[in-house]
Amino acid sequence: MCLAIPSKITKIDNQMATIDVDGVQREVSLLLLADAQVGDYVIVHAGFAIQKVDEAAAKETLKLLREALSLMGRREGD
C-alpha cells in the first residue's frame, strides 16, 4: 500500500501537486500536508502526499551510520 520512495513535486495547483515518479507525472492531493512547495520531496500514500522528506536528516543519518561502521571518507565530494 505504501509507495516507499519519495517523489519530487514539480508543480502545485491549488491543493493538488504534480509529482514525478521515475519520469511519469502523477497528481497527488496536498490536503494532508501543511506546507509543501515545488521542489520538495514527498512521501505519497494512496494519492496523498503525507510527509516532506527532511533532506538534512537523511544526510545526517547516513553520516552517523558511516561513522559507526567506520566507513568515513568514502564518497567525498558526492
Binding site: I5, K8, D22, L65, L71, R75
Partner: peptide, 22 residues
C-alpha cells in the same frame, strides 16, 4: 527522478557492514 542520497540508502557496502556488525 530520485534524490541522490537515496542511492546511498541502498549502498551495498553499508549493508554488508551492517550485516557484519549484526
Amino acid at each position: 527522478m530520485s534524490i541522490k542520497y537515496m542511492d546511498e540508502y541502498r549502498d551495498s557496502e553499508i549493508s554488508r557492514k551492517l550485516v557484519e556488525k549484526i
